[in-house]
Nucleic acid binder design. Structure first.
Length: 121
DNA sequence: GTTGAGCGTT
């Protein structure tokens, strides 16, 4: 009879983490940043929560200023979650931060064309 | 000297 209670108890203790909700990665999408924030300040603000392996802020090539959002990668997801849980909703340089998990994005450039087997001849 | 939702190469 204890088996049933065990099953129920174990179920209650089991983490109800949705298997189809991988809304967690070691990459964090940080938005709401001030237009004066740079990667160094962002890393310095997040490196205290874990080991930051990558920090990327998006800039505008027309105005030369930051787009107001960037990406922060951690060595472990646990650190990223802690950082998000700790810095999400907080404020940096006078502006509130909006942190979310980054989506996978191909890197390299806006477009890449493979060389044709024709050799250009 | 400005503005403020977002998911990627300035």
């Amino acid at each position: 009879m204890n088996r049933n209670l065990m099953s129920v108890a174990r179920k209650a203790l089991t983490k109800v983490h949705s298997p189809n909700s991988p809304a967690t990665n070691n990459k964090l999408f940080v938005a709401g940043l001030s237009w004066s924030v740079d990667e160094r300040s962002l890393k310095d603000a997040f490196c205290s929560f874990g080991d930051v392996t990558e920090v990327r802020i998006l800039y505008d090539k027309d105005s030369g200023r930051s787009r107001g959002f960037g990406f922060v990668s951690f060595c472990k997801e646990d650190e990223a979650v802690s950082a998000k849980d700790a810095m999400d909703g907080k404020a940096l340089l006078g502006r509130p931060l909006r942190i979310s998990y980054a989506l996978e994005r191909a890197r390299g450039g806006p477009v890449v064309l493979p060389r044709l087997p024709n050799g250009g001849r």
